[in-house]
Amino acid sequence: MDFTLKIWRQEGPQAVGHMATYQVTDISDEMSFLEMIDVLNDQLVRSGDEPVAFDHDCREGICGMCSMFINGEAHGPNRLTTTCQLHMRSFKNGETITIEPWRAAAFPVIRDLVVDRSSMDRIIQSGGYVSVNTNGNTVDANALPIPKPAADEAFEAAVCIGCGACVATCKNASAMLFVAAKVSQLALLPQGQPERTARVEGMVEQMDLEGFGNCTNTGACEVECPMGISLDHIARMNRDYLTAKVANKG
């Protein structure tokens, strides 16, 4: 298969970026999207050019590092799929493919397709945990039975890989789905109850400080989320947030 690639190139955080056009040929349909970019980079290095910088690590859809906006969609055309799990059989021979970085004020570009997502770490640092020290003296794990439906729903929120596709895809660059996934996971579990109020307040405040936009419930994040995290978690977070605010005023 042959493709024309239009890729965002930007030398550094302060540099002016532009779209550059490249050709790749003899691409097998078995290749992953990132392996196709490897082929392009090999070509660029051999011809004395600088390769396209892009984030990637596990290449099995779980680390959340890969982050490409492909033909106007976060992680490309397939649902429930990260960029690294996208394969070239999902494209037509001869197609032109446009590749951009995640675009959001809270995700500044570092180079080419690589962006800085440390804002998401800082949100977690503002309360996305249960405050329990390591000491080996907590109660026996089975002393705390958790109804299976609650455990399962918490798990569905906990699978968030923190890739930022929800932010990249939202017209407001909102991080609500990401934040809600963590808030909801811990709100569903008994371990999360003591800090439930402080957690949602702390994380939402940090989210606003980082410059993420507001949620207008378009649901685009849910569609593009490679882990299929549901908008229901945003509803749960909003309810918790409102409760927290009302309680604090009282």
Partner: peptide, 25 residues
């Protein structure tokens, strides 16, 4: 020896291990 404490610790952190219908791990 320390293996059992790991599970206790992780559960307290909110790690959602698989459970059976009785709510046990």
């Amino acid at each position: 020896e320390v293996s059992a404490s790991i599970i206790d610790q992780c559960v307290m952190q909110g790690v959602p291990f698989a459970r059976d219908y009785g709510g046990m791990l």
